[in-house]
């Protein structure tokens, strides 16, 4: 589930990333239709609850409604919701950091940030 959410964040950020870089398998039908998760049959109610939550989280955590949170809790419990939020913080933050670091390194300013510091 977390890998599905991570891959959706990757799509939302518009960055190239491998679906296999973490070695976590995702069903090919889900991988091929992730952008269309709202209506594709490869996604069940739990998937949709988590992906809907992920999309709003990435845009603005303040915009998360009780209904979005309740939908996740209905399938994963209170602890599942907390675990998802913690994971999204890390995954979305890593994507933003990666993009920021790469952009600074690629800029025409003086010197390069040491790529090995990544």
């Amino acid at each position: 589930m977390l890998e599905l959410c991570r891959l959706r964040l990757v799509q939302l950020h518009g960055v190239p990333a491998s679906a296999t870089e973490l070695g976590i398998a995702v069903a090919p039908a889900q991988l091929d239709n992730l952008a269309d998760w709202h209506r594709h049959s490869a996604f069940d109610a739990r998937d949709r609850a988590c992906l809907a939550f992920t999309e709003v989280y990435a845009a603005d955590a303040q915009a998360i409604t009780d209904a979005l949170a309740d939908a996740v809790k209905a399938h994963s419990g209170d602890a599942g919701l907390v675990a998802l939020i913690e994971a999204l913080g890390l995954l979305d933050g890593m994507l933003r950091t990666e993009r920021l670091w790469s952009a600074i390194n690629a800029s025409g300013g003086d010197g390069n940030v040491d790529a090995t510091a990544r």
């Binding site: 989280y57 955590a61 303040q62 998360i64 009780d66 949170a69 919701l81 907390v82 939020i85 913690e86 999204l88 913080g89 890390l90 979305d92 933050g93 890593m94 933003r96 950091t97 920021l100 670091w101």
Partner: peptide, 19 residues
């Protein structure tokens, strides 16, 4: 700085997302 901001972001958005 990069790691710190990543951490602060994740932690603060936890608090906001939990409501």
């Amino acid at each position: 700085l990069a790691l710190a901001v990543l951490y602060f972001s994740g932690f603060s958005r936890c608090a906001v997302a939990l409501g």
